[in-house]
Design a protein around this nucleic acid. Structure first.
Ligand SMILES: NC(=O)c1ccc[n+]([C@@H]2O[C@H](COP(=O)([O-])OP(=O)(O)OC[C@H]3O[C@@H](n4cnc5c(N)ncnc54)[C@H](O)[C@@H]3O)[C@@H](O)[C@H]2O)c1
Ligand SMILES: NC(=O)c1ccc[n+]([C@@H]2O[C@H](COP(=O)([O-])OP(=O)(O)OC[C@H]3O[C@@H](n4cnc5c(N)ncnc54)[C@H](O)[C@@H]3O)[C@@H](O)[C@H]2O)c1
Lengths: 210, 210
DNA sequence: TGTTTGATGTGAATTATCTCACATGTTTGT
DNA sequence: ACAAACATGTGAGATAATTCACATCAAACA
């Protein structure tokens, strides 16, 4: 291990490794080789070893990796050894589905605030116990609840404005579901989820026939 | 332009360019330079020119690109000059939200079939007019309705099984929302949508503080 | 204790992707 | 008709990411 710039792709793969390892834990697998893990994750074994080598030596030569240890290590690397408070902005179709979804909590992501502008939604109590606030209260509530990551599920036209407000409120991690490229200062990290791009990619592959 | 292998990243960016160009069209922008488009999309101008150059010469030197033409060209490249029939497998929380979402149709993706195993859901008529079928009828209905792409929104444990059935039914494009790596033959192209990975990536960036 | 087996960790080679820099062609203005 | 301004298209160079190949160490076993 040496100090080097970590490829973005490595970080994403670490998530996948962790997910797969957690499944294995439930099946009482104690030790795993990079080869087996690689097959399961659909990557090259050397890739896994190299990804991990950016951060340390976690395996035992001739043996493999202890599944449990590796999960702990990867969580440490990714910063998942602590809870992360989330805020949802836009409690519509998609926002509600996400709020209802239990998987986030399981991974340490906790919805602690939700915002909308629709009077029919503001004040409503959600299944997970939180109450929908008006967007006007965004900054106040986000600071009060120590939210660190904002999820944007408003219509596309509103997304940039919401992003601006989030940044002002001190947020520097945004997961954006609206199909627009939002612009933020460097201090803020944005990830986009855009299903249509993925569909376009499938359409392309089917069209060129490979 | 010459014949070369197209980077996957190029295909994904073409989607983004197209989306941005379509917005511009609505604001009556007729011509755009790679520089302006690049800024809007958050990429390097040369990148855009190179991406397009894989497929032809679409611009006018000294002028830029005609927005309308470029949209048409990119659609041609991606295979979006025709409708694509989709099937949704798993009409739960997320599946319903997607089915209700109008944006897909706007881009030429049409839900023509939906499947579930829950007796409470099978037979139900959805807002978009289609009726939920039992998964037992998967192959039959998919062939009948000429579905080309399958969206998996079942619980993770079911995803691989569903993928197998889809492949048997002749599908070779899958958009998988379940948080597992599904294995398919080479003829089938899979794209994964996993929000948790994106959250992990944000958590990492916030943790290392950059 | 020595040998064989097995799987990690990593430098080097390869492959993929991005960016630069400028020649090329277009338009505008004089 | 010519020059100046502009923006594309692209070869070459730089950078990044992946894969190979093997030295290295741990365990098992004779
Ligand atoms: N639903 C999907 O399956 C899906 C799929 C892909 C992308 N998206 C994107 O996700 C976003 C939301 O989609 P949806 O289907 O949930 O739409 P929706 O209309 O059901 O929900 C949007 C919600 O945002 C609220 N809102 C509007 N302006 C707001 C503001 N300024 N501040 C706070 N809240 C505001 C609305 O009141 C509404 O409740 C859209 O950008 C859409 O393109 C959705
Ligand atoms: N809801 C979210 O916001 C969200 C976010 C990220 C990922 N996901 C993933 O998406 C998937 C679905 O999530 P959800 O919240 O909609 O779950 P859900 O339980 O609400 O819906 C799952 C649906 O699949 C159906 N189903 C189960 N087995 C099936 C089978 N063999 N064939 C067909 N249908 C079957 C169930 O009857 C149910 O209707 C899960 O894998 C989940 O991890 C969901």
């Amino acid at each position: 291990m040496k100090f080097a710039k970590i490829p973005m792709a490595t970080i994403n793969r670490l998530s996948i490794y962790m997910r797969t390892l957690q499944e294995m834990l439930e099946e009482d697998v104690e030790v795993i080789s990079s080869e087996r893990l690689a097959k399961q994750c659909g990557v090259n074994p050397a890739q896994i070893r190299k990804d991990l080598a950016y951060f340390g030596e976690f395996g035992v030569r001739g043996v493999g990796y202890r599944v449990n240890d590796l999960v702990v290590q990867i969580k440490d690397i990714l910063g998942l050894n602590r809870p992360w408070n989330l805020a949802m902005i836009g409690v519509g179709n998609l926002g509600s589905a996400l709020l209802r979804h239990g998987n986030f909590t399981k991974h340490g992501y906790i919805f602690t605030a939700a915002f909308d502008v629709d009077p029919k939604k503001v004040g409503k109590r959600l299944p997970n116990g939180i109450t929908v606030n008006h967007v006007d209260e965004l900054e106040e509530k986000i600071k009060e609840k120590e939210v660190l990551i904002g999820l944007i599920t408003t219509p596309a036209g509103e997304a940039q404005g919401i992003a601006n407000q989030l940044v002002l409120a001190g947020i520097n991690g945004i997961l954006n579901f609206a199909p627009v490229q939002i612009q933020v200062p460097d201090c803020c990290h944005v990830e986009n989820v855009d299903f249509t791009i993925k569909l376009d990619s499938i359409a392309y592959h089917l069209s060129v026939g490979s």
